[in-house]
């Protein structure tokens, strides 16, 4: 399966799960909504050009927004993590994109600890920005902080679960055309 086809299917599955399962889970606490859909952006191949990353972030956020009827909200948050992603990757494993032996960021490709840091920073950024935008016209500062903390914790739990349950197959880069 080519990268393109795989990622299209992935996007559809992530949006579906987010819009129809996670968004409808009865609240654990006030508005602690479990988020996982942005894992799509975290899983994009290392070699994705930065402009393509931005465009994909825009599309991902917008498609969820149209299901939730909040146009622009998740789009802004997704764009932010799509923009920051390359910096975090170079920070954590300073290699050229072509030097990675694996195609995509995963615990196997980066090692569990640096993958968790990578996922944690981007999750925190996503939730912080998302909650901040919501807070601009609604809510209090304490609510903001509690919400960011709680949603980040739940998202990290979901990400770890996903990584353990669905280990992606070993994808070595080879010299032959993929």
């Amino acid at each position: 399966m080519s990268d393109l086809v795989r990622n299209i299917i992935r996007l559809a599955v992530f949006i579906f799960v987010q819009a129809f399962i996670l968004n409808k889970v009865p609240n654990l606490h006030r508005f602690v909504v479990p988020y996982i859909y942005f894992l799509f952006i975290l899983w994009l191949p290392f070699t994705t050009p930065r402009l393509t990353l931005l465009a994909l972030g825009f599309i991902t956020g917008l498609s969820l927004d149209y299901f939730k009827m909040t146009p622009g909200l998740h789009t802004a948050a997704c764009l932010l993590i799509a923009y920051v992603r390359p910096f975090i990757i170079t920070l954590l494993s300073p290699k050229e994109a072509t030097e990675f032996t694996f195609r995509e960021p995963s615990p196997r490709a980066m090692g569990w600890s640096s993958y968790m840091v990578y996922a944690f920073i981007l999750t925190l950024l996503h939730h912080l920005y998302l909650t901040f935008l919501e807070w601009l016209d609604f809510g209090s500062l304490l609510d903001l902080l509690i919400k960011v903390g709680a949603t980040t914790a739940i998202s990290m739990l979901l990400i770890v679960t996903t990584e353990v349950l669905f280990p992606r197959k070993l994808k070595f880069r080879t010299n032959t055309a993929a």
């Binding site: 402009l51 149209y66 909040t70 146009p71 622009g72 909200l73």
Partner: peptide, 27 residues
């Protein structure tokens, strides 16, 4: 890349803040 990020971010925020229940959202 930075510029296009800012432009896209601007579009997203514009969509967010011009949307309220009286105006139909973009698209």
């Amino acid at each position: 890349v930075l510029l296009s990020f800012l432009v896209l971010q601007g579009i997203a925020l514009w969509m967010l803040f011009t949307y309220n229940r009286f105006h139909q959202a973009v698209g």
